[in-house]
Simulated scan of single mutants.
Amino acid sequence: MTEAVPPAPRPVTPTTILARELDEIADRLGDGVPADVVARLRRARDLAGGLDPYLDRCTSPESADLAELARRTREAPWASREVVSGSGPLEQEMLSGHVEGRFLAFLVRMLRARRVLEIGMFTGYSALAIAEALPEGGEVVACEVDPYVAGLAREWLDLSPAGAAVTIEVGSAVETLDRLEGPFDLVFVDADKTGYAEYYRRLLDSDLLAPGAVVAVDNTLLQGQPWADDPTANGAAVARFNQLVADDPRVEQVLVPLRDGVTLIRRV
């Protein structure tokens, strides 16, 4: 019996969605369309579609342990009815992935971070990427609301020596933040989008952030939804969050168009 092949990841970033749209339009062009228009459309398609693979090739490779965790995530039965999540549908596209993992590891080393807080961890790829970059004695505290996916993350993190630096806190991130003791040198937020504003307020209004700490927030471009005419509920929540940060005189921020958008925030 042939083993089932997991489905390829669907487009979930502005660039990959744009590439898919251009590809489908190019395939539907009928006779009579000027050749130069067809050529320009295909160049635009290739420009958008080639970006992420090029970034992958030009970024330092992931470790064998990260590659194994990514493989297990891709092959997990997310579409199965046996998978029940307390945080909504789970899918392989939630994985941070190679380039973003390297980006986070770079931040850890630049900041010389020793304690890192993660709000939303999924299967643990970003937590492991961060843990691999920490100095001896460093730690990652990862908040995950969903017991099923937290169990997978613990199991897969334990396959790597660096995984021992990761502590998983299962439950509401808001409740976990209320009882955690700081400070943290880096915080990575990749959780429910409607909770972003509250996580941000609790971080900025507490002593959880060390002097010079950076808060990195994922999905702040959210498939182009924040500037769409009719955004989804998550898209509208991210748009409100982005404006909240932009209007906050306590911080400086930059929105980096990496994958689905990562905003870096620090107190001024």
Results as ranks from 00 to 15, higher is better:
residue 69 L to D: 01
residue 214 V to Q: 02
residue 260 D to N: 13
residue 240 R to G: 08
residue 208 L to S: 02
residue 56 D to C: 05
residue 76 A to S: 12
residue 235 G to T: 00
residue 177 L to Q: 09
residue 68 E to T: 13
residue 187 V to M: 10
residue 46 D to H: 14
residue 151 G to S: 07
residue 66 L to G: 07
residue 146 D to W: 03
residue 87 S to L: 07
residue 111 L to T: 09
residue 23 D to C: 09
residue 16 T to H: 06
residue 225 Q to A: 08
residue 50 G to H: 03
residue 96 S to Q: 15
residue 146 D to P: 03
residue 5 V to I: 15
residue 221 L to I: 05
residue 75 E to F: 07
residue 136 E to R: 11
residue 52 D to Y: 11
residue 54 Y to D: 09
residue 179 R to S: 08
residue 165 A to L: 11
residue 94 M to T: 09
residue 85 S to K: 02
residue 140 V to D: 02
residue 184 F to K: 02
residue 68 E to H: 12
residue 150 A to W: 09
residue 75 E to H: 02
residue 193 K to R: 10
residue 61 P to C: 02
residue 91 E to S: 09
residue 91 E to T: 14
residue 161 P to D: 08
residue 52 D to F: 13
residue 165 A to P: 07
residue 34 P to N: 03
residue 144 E to D: 14
residue 83 V to Y: 10
residue 101 G to V: 14
residue 39 A to F: 11
residue 222 L to F: 10
residue 184 F to S: 00
residue 25 I to G: 00
residue 176 T to I: 11
residue 113 A to W: 01
residue 92 Q to H: 13
residue 174 V to W: 00
residue 17 I to L: 14
residue 219 N to V: 06
residue 16 T to L: 13
residue 118 E to V: 05
residue 165 A to M: 08
residue 31 D to G: 11
residue 261 G to E: 01
residue 108 V to D: 12
residue 28 R to F: 04
residue 206 S to T: 14
residue 239 A to E: 07
residue 142 A to F: 00
residue 41 L to M: 10
residue 126 S to I: 09
residue 227 W to P: 00
residue 9 P to N: 12
residue 18 L to K: 12
residue 243 Q to D: 13
residue 59 T to F: 06
residue 143 C to F: 04
residue 76 A to M: 01
residue 1 M to I: 13
residue 111 L to V: 14
residue 158 D to W: 02
residue 34 P to D: 08
residue 208 L to R: 06
residue 125 Y to T: 06
residue 35 A to F: 06
residue 226 P to G: 12
residue 167 T to N: 12
residue 262 V to F: 01
residue 200 Y to L: 01
residue 146 D to T: 05
residue 141 V to Q: 09
residue 260 D to G: 11
residue 78 W to K: 02
residue 36 D to V: 02
residue 212 G to N: 11
residue 196 Y to A: 04
residue 106 F to H: 07
residue 228 A to Q: 06
residue 256 V to L: 15
residue 19 A to G: 03
residue 75 E to Q: 00
residue 78 W to Q: 04
residue 62 E to C: 13
residue 11 P to R: 04
residue 29 L to G: 08
residue 164 A to E: 03
residue 58 C to I: 11
residue 157 L to N: 06
residue 126 S to L: 12
residue 127 A to E: 07
residue 12 V to M: 05
residue 247 D to P: 01
residue 147 P to I: 00
residue 134 L to K: 07
residue 73 T to E: 04
residue 96 S to A: 15
residue 244 L to I: 04
residue 94 M to L: 15
residue 97 G to D: 05
